[in-house]
Simulated assay, not measured.
Amino acid sequence: MSSAPAGTAAGMPLGSAPAPLLRRILQQGRYETVTMLRNGEQLILAVILPLLALVGLAATPLLDGLGSSRVNIAVPGILALCAMSTAFTGQGIATGFDRRYGVLRFLSTTPLGRTGLILGKVIAVLVVLLLQVLVVTAVALPLGWQPAPAGLLPGFALLVLGAAAFTALGLLVAGTVRPEATLAITNLLWILLGALGGIVIPAERLPALAQAVVHFLPSGALGQALRDAFLHGSSNTASVIVLLLWTATAGFAATRWFKWN
């Protein structure tokens, strides 16, 4: 049996340095992004269903009387739904099954490390979210979407904040329960929050009981904050505070209780 040459380990030079941390993180982010985009079920959840909801809301009178046009009211909620689909449901399910098959445990022991792994997932969420924004915009503009110019930059910043909150929540679920439970919880919450969480349908059109709580949910806070930004060019401070609290609380909980195996 032959052995590796002297001064080498497994055919690699001893003491060879790993790639720089930033390069490792970017490579992991690229891998996570490609994996998400190749997953047909995630694409349906992240792109197809939000687009169907957008067309449906623009074609029906459900949002009449809430603003200048149906599509202007619908688009902010659809963008918020995209953030929840990718950051919470998609990333939560992917992370849960990576944990089950030992991928997380393996990668956390490589030079990438746990921090690099998490940052790679964050990059993937942001890249996919950007693609979602471009697709939704390409469909919404011909339908007559006219966002307030002053609200564009704040709106997209809020979208990133909302993605951070939902990513933290997705990692919390994925890191604390079994993958099958993660699949059930994230899909169920996607349906409930999408329908009754104030993310697509404004609170004014929800049942009285839902109106009392949606503003304290990340879905309701993100949906309302985006509507205020894109419709009126204004900032909803209360919604921003709610999103920051959810991000900090879920992030701390995920860091504290996340199980890597």
Rank of each mutant, 00 (worst) to 15 (best):
G92I: 11
A19H: 14
Q132Y: 06
Y31E: 10
V103S: 07
G67N: 04
E32D: 14
V47F: 14
I93A: 11
I78G: 02
V71W: 10
P111V: 02
P13F: 00
L112P: 03
R38Y: 02
G65M: 12
Q91H: 00
A94M: 14
V34I: 12
L57N: 03
L112C: 03
L43Q: 08
E32W: 03
G120C: 11
Q42R: 07
L112E: 01
S108K: 04
L45S: 04
L54F: 04
D64I: 11
P76M: 09
N39I: 02
T95I: 06
L134D: 05
E32F: 03
A83K: 00
K121C: 07
G40S: 01
T95K: 03
I93R: 05
F106T: 07
L129V: 08
E32I: 00
Y31L: 14
T115V: 13
I123A: 03
G15H: 10
A17C: 05
L45H: 11
I78H: 01
T109S: 11
L14R: 05
D64V: 05
R100G: 10
A124K: 09
I118A: 11
L22F: 02
F106Y: 07
A46N: 15
V136E: 10
I44P: 02
F88E: 02
V47W: 09
A80V: 14
Q91R: 07
A94F: 06
G113F: 02
E41A: 13
S16C: 10
G113V: 10
G29Y: 00
T89C: 09
Q91V: 02
S16Y: 06
C82V: 15
V34F: 09
R70P: 06
A58Q: 13
T33N: 03
L43M: 14
N39E: 10
R99W: 05
T60R: 00
P61S: 01
G116V: 06
F88D: 09
L126C: 08
T137A: 12
L107E: 05
T115W: 14
L45E: 12
T86I: 15
S69Q: 07
L81D: 07
L81W: 12
I118N: 06
V133C: 10
A58M: 00
L26D: 09
L117S: 00
A17T: 11
L57R: 04
A74M: 07
Y101W: 15
A19P: 11
L62C: 00
G11H: 11
G90I: 15
